[in-house]
Design a protein around this nucleic acid. Structure first.
Lengths: 120, 120
DNA sequence: TCTTCATGTTTACACCCGTAATCGTTGGCT
DNA sequence: AGCCAACGATTACGGGTGTAAACATGAAGA
């Protein structure tokens, strides 16, 4: 199940708060994306069709909730990138970011703490 | 300049070895992708049109070489993912991989070495 | 020189994606 | 009971992508 980037914005709203009506989603998402309500409705429907979210009737409208967990999505995306660009290895990725100067001292400190936590 | 995933496979061949003829690329790439020669030709042409590679005549054929550096592509892709999924911060990404159990002891050792290298 | 083969160029086509308008239905108000 | 507004469903459409065939051109061999 492939979730497109536009669709993932809608998923983002549902991952943050759940369940939401179409109106809620549009409110959350239209700002910042500049989408019309119609666009949000289309995305909701595509997500429904591919089974990424579920709809449950609530009076005259539906409430939507995610069926795909955020973790699963993040996992698929980041593993894909790691495999495609870094031969599946994490260290080269970290090394890459260190070389492009994208690491603040806080990042480094946090990473260090993390890594030490891994040690048995 | 957006390089699609299929196109990036062709770029991959050129980043590994350069310059290459269309035939070379097809040989490198068709295996593993299951593409016909025609498909590879199309991708080469699209890359030419968007200026991602250059062609230089070599007798009856052309030799191709990348104009976009692998580093630039990797940078754009991975920064994009980091921003979209991890709020631009590296530590959560590393943490994510540690939790999904994708880290071998060698990975950890290598990361540790890296991080220590960052320290002043 | 004529034909054939290799190589690059053009065209094709179905599907996905971003973006949206229109249609249809149903509950609520008058 | 009839009309209106809200909401979801259907349809639209241009552009990109994956995949590939058809066409053109020029060089090499017969």
């Amino acid at each position: 199940m492939k979730i497109s980037t536009a669709e993932s914005v809608v998923m983002g709203a549902l991952w943050a708060r759940e369940p939401l009506s179409a109106e809620d989603i549009a409110a959350d998402v239209a700002e910042g994306q500049g989408w019309s309500d119609a666009t949000v409705k289309t995305l909701i429907n595509r997500l429904l069709n591919k089974g990424a979210i579920a709809a449950e009737r609530d009076g005259r409208r539906y409430l939507y909730r995610p069926l795909v967990a955020r973790e699963a999505y993040v996992e698929a995306e980041s593993q894909g990138l790691l495999d495609r660009l870094f031969d599946g290895k994490l260290a080269p990725l970290v090394s890459h970011f260190s070389q492009t100067g994208a690491l603040t001292p806080e990042d480094i400190a946090e990473l260090k703490k993390l890594i030490e936590g891994f040690e048995p």
